[in-house]
Simulated scan of single mutants.
Amino acid sequence: MTQKAACFPPQVRLREPAEFKRVFAKAERSTDKYFTVLAIVNELDFPRLGLAIAKKNIRRAVDRNKIKRSARESFRLQQHEMINIDIVVMARRDAATANSKILQASLDNHWLRLNKRCATYS
C-alpha cells in the first residue's frame, strides 16, 4: 500500500494572471459565510489552488496570512481526493474573525461541493 505525499509543490499553484482569469471567466461557484470558492476543470492530472485574499475585505496582514495558511493546509490534505480542477479561494469579511478550525471545516465543505459539481464536466 503506497501513501501519496501530502505536499504543496509549485506545480499545484495558480501563478499566472491568465490562469486566474480563466477561472474567473466561467467557474462553478461555492459560497458561504467565510469564503467564495471558484473552480473550473483543467487539462492536467491534478488540482491547482490560487488565493485571492483582498485587502479590501481582510484589512490586517496577520488575518490575511492566517486565512492563506488555512486554505493551503486544507488543500494540501484534500488534494488527493480531488479531481483535476483549478480553484481560486476568495475570503469574505467574516473569515478575519473566525478561528482556524472553522475555516478548515468551511473549506473542506467547499472542496466536496466543487468536486461534485465539476465532476459532471470532466
Rank of each mutant, 00 (worst) to 15 (best):
N42Q: 14
K66L: 13
T120M: 07
L103P: 05
D32R: 08
L107W: 08
R92H: 09
R113Q: 12
L14M: 07
T97R: 13
A6D: 15
V12L: 13
H110I: 06
V12H: 10
P17D: 07
Q104H: 13
A52V: 11
S100H: 11
R93E: 11
R72Y: 02
L44R: 14
D32N: 12
Y121S: 13
D108Q: 14
P47A: 14
V62W: 08
K56V: 11
A119H: 15
Q78V: 00
K68E: 03
M90P: 01
L114M: 08
T31K: 12
V37Q: 02
K21I: 00
R13P: 06
P9M: 11
A96R: 06
S100E: 12
T97S: 13
R22F: 10
D45Q: 14
F8C: 05
V88P: 00
T97E: 12
L103T: 07
A54V: 05
T36V: 15
E73L: 14
N109I: 03
N109R: 15
L107K: 02
F24L: 07
N99E: 13
F46H: 15
A39D: 10
R48T: 06
H110F: 02
S74K: 07
D45K: 14
R13A: 10
R29G: 03
D45F: 10
A105T: 08
I40Q: 15
N42R: 08
A61K: 04
E73Y: 14
L103A: 07
K26T: 09
M82F: 01
Q79I: 08
P47K: 04
R113Y: 11
A91M: 01
R76V: 10
E73M: 10
Y121I: 08
R72K: 15
D94R: 13
R15K: 14
I102M: 09
F35T: 02
F46A: 06
L77N: 07
F75K: 10
I87K: 01
T120A: 13
V41M: 06
R113C: 01
K21C: 02
G50A: 09
I53N: 01
A39E: 06
F8P: 02
A61L: 07
Q78R: 12
K68I: 10
K4I: 06
N65C: 05
R13V: 08
S30V: 00
